[in-house]
Amino acid sequence: MNHDNETPHESAPYSLYLLTWLALVLLTATTVTVAGLNFGRLSILVALVIAGIKSSIVLTWFMHLRQESKLFHMILLVTIVVLVIAIGLTFTDILYR
């Protein structure tokens, strides 16, 4: 268990984070605009997709997920799968009563 040899990460330039932030702001503007356009039942789906993209950006760039080992990606995957199953299976009840 000798972890003395952790290679120091490259220090990311500040501009990287600024660009990430910009992308998030643009996506926020998009989602607000789209909400006003009324796609009916698709609206919620579009909103959730954009929210998903924003979250991926935060995870990948702000939370450094792209630099992490597969194990960390697995934690994310497990979390998402758990939520999808919990909500999905509950809906087999809710929707079909």
Binding site: I44, A47, L48, K54, S55
Partner: peptide, 13 residues
């Protein structure tokens, strides 16, 4: 991230 999801679900519907 939690807020990123709360926002559309409460404010944008």
């Amino acid at each position: 991230i939690i807020w990123i999801f709360l926002f559309p679900l409460f404010y944008l519907i």
